[in-house]
Amino acid sequence: MAALEWQLGTVTTIQPETPKTKSFYVALPKWAGHRPGQHIDLRLTAPDGYQTQRSYSIASPPELSGQLELTVDLIQDGEVSPYLHDVVMQGDQLELRGPVGGYFVWDVTVGGPLLLVGGGSGVVPLMAMLRHRAAQHSTIPARLLYSCRTPDDVIYRDELNQLAGSVAGLEVLITFTRQAPAGWTGYQRRIDAAMLNEVITPFGTSARTYVCGPTLLVESVANLLVGMGLPADRVHTERFGPTGS
């Protein structure tokens, strides 16, 4: 198998998603394709040779060829994300390698029913799965439970609304943990056992679950799901570490 090689991509579009999240479209002439849920390693090199790298989930589905969408949360005291947010411009080059990871991966061949649970920017790899599902016109039952602090923090809000309204068998449920929009009748608390139980009920313990977000949210949700009787090998987890604020 070919070694994982660093390659140069060109930033073609930068799109703000929320006040602290931006999507970067990167054109990659040598990209060999990826599966939904995989990520890339991005490496920055300073003029003095100092290097640092981070891994970022791929937001775009495999069906978008020739380029990747990376959605990056701004970590205030971070080393890489402030550079991406504040310095990188359209036309700049970025060095990355991938795709990496095979564990946190879902495509239509894996089947369902599919329960996706995301917190904050943990929605990014889940979005690649939902975009792939839509591009394949799959009717595999799918639910996304997405935890956000406030309405301003909902990444891909318009697209999620549009997908939920137009794609068969998909439900998007958002819970707001700090402040909900006026007139909100949905969930307004952290994800807990009662909420997970309601969300998973139509699928039961046959659900294939993918949980991604801040470490503490993932720990809590994964433990609850296993406690509800889901086999551990159907609970896939990816921990992003600290939250962005």
Binding site: L4, H39, G101, Y103, R239, G241, P242
Partner: peptide
């Protein structure tokens, strides 16, 4: 605990060492 991530985060390093996905 806050800064902890999981093995997915070093999938690239592991693949570099072993030559294929190790996750």
């Amino acid at each position: 605990t806050e800064l902890m991530v999981d093995g997915n985060a070093i999938a690239g390093e592991l693949e570099q060492i072993f030559g294929h996905d190790m996750t």
